[in-house]
């Protein structure tokens, strides 16, 4: 769900291509590139360049981490959902996100890593997750905005990955995209209900949430193309198919119209239709805020990671008990 442009995540140390490669390896790499060019799918046991493997492990696992961490800002409002229907919808949505994380960890594991290793990277801060989740959910209306804007941005990022060259990732993404559209629709519908049928206080709550989430949402597409050096290789390999700026523009164009239907004002006085470009012009993004949050100093970075680490550590005895029980019974079965 909550992908973020590949280029903002640190490059894996030691991934510069080796200077000297054997003739066999060069041949394998040529064949591999040919397959990519033909639009062929790469499966788990196929030969692949080490850089391709590492790039994918990083991207897929960070996508998975984003789903898991993303359960927290929304989980924050489950106990306070204003109606039983909204409570059920939120529970189902957060459950879906857990499921998406799971599909993605499974896809990453096909590349020769383990869930524990991936989680360790997250918990020690080596791996990143989408920085949008480092913002707090301060009102119920945030649940609607997250669905509308954050899921909306995520969908836009994600759909192209359904055609990713690495098939286990592509398959996971297809499954995720199928489940995702409910997420955006329910958020928008919640806001629409409040705007059209709610009280003045509710309408004020909706406008306020949009004021807070608009800029962070469009930052989800990552830095401008001219500041994104790693995109090129990912695009060659069919891992990333559309550029950051292009996706961002697409999102803004779609969302401005949705905002009009909602009856909210987007907090950008420079948003204006450009007849020549056939797109909306928009105001300058505060990239210093973006880098600050990505770098670990956003509003909730510490709390989010802390919550994940705590859940993991508090749960160690449970995982150990399950394994102990299983091995006792496996032994008993073998003895029988």
């Amino acid at each position: 769900m909550y992908t973020q442009a590949m280029d903002t995540m640190d490059q894996e140390p030691g991934t510069r291509k080796k200077a000297v490669r054997s003739a066999e390896e060069m041949l394998l790499e040529q064949r591999f590139e040919a397959r990519i060019d033909e639009g062929d799918f790469i499966e788990a046991k196929d030969w692949m360049p080490e850089h391709y493997r590492k790039t994918l492990v990083r991207q897929i696992s960070q996508h998975a981490h984003s789903e898991i961490v993303g359960m927290l800002p929304e989980g924050n409002w489950i106990s306070r959902a204003p109606t039983l229907k909204r409570k059920a919808i939120l529970l189902a949505k957060v459950q879906d996100e857990g499921g998406h994380g799971l599909y993605l960890y499974a896809a990453a594991e096909t590349l020769g890593t383990s869930r524990d290793q991936l989680l360790d990277a997250l918990h020690t801060g080596k791996a990143k997750y989408s920085s949008i989740f480092n913002y707090p959910t301060l009102t119920w209306a945030d649940m609607g905005t997250i669905g509308w804007l954050v899921d909306g941005a995520a969908i836009m990022n994600q759909v192209p990955i359904c055609r990713c060259s690495y098939a286990p990732y592509a398959r996971a993404m297809i499954r995720i995209c199928r489940e995702e559209s409910f997420h955006q629709r329910q958020g928008y519908e919640a806001l629409l209900t409040m705007m059209q049928q709610g009280t003045d206080a509710q309408r004020a709550m909706v406008q306020e949430t949009v004021n807070r989430w608009w800029w962070p949402s469009i930052m989800m597409f990552g830095p401008p193309d001219d500041q994104s050096p790693n995109s090129a290789q990912s695009m060659r390999w069919g891992i990333k198919r559309i550029s950051n700026d292009e996706l961002r523009q697409k999102f803004i164009d779609a969302t401005v119209d949705q905002a009009k239907v909602l009856g909210v004002t987007l907090p950008d006085p420079e948003l204006k239709w450009n007849e020549e470009r056939q797109h909306y012009d928009y105001g300058p993004i505060d990239w210093s805020e973006f880098w600050r949050v990505v770098g670990g100093d956003g509003p909730c970075n510490h709390e989010r990671l802390g919550a994940r680490v705590k859940a993991w550590e508090d749960g160690a005895w449970v995982r150990e008990a399950a394994l102990a029980h299983a091995s006792k019974h496996a032994a008993a079965q073998q003895a029988a």
């Binding site: 599909y103 594991e109 383990s114 524990d116 150990e320 394994l323 029980h325 299983a326 496996a330």
Partner: peptide, 30 residues
């Protein structure tokens, strides 16, 4: 790794008459 719950592959049959299809994996202790 040693202390992890093992990985399992999951196959689902959606409807009687169809095959089980691989749909992903998960970790479970037993």
């Amino acid at each position: 790794t040693q202390n992890e719950w093992p990985l399992w592959e999951v196959f689902v049959r959606t409807k009687a008459g169809l095959d089980h299809k691989h749909c992903g994996s998960l970790h479970a202790a037993d």
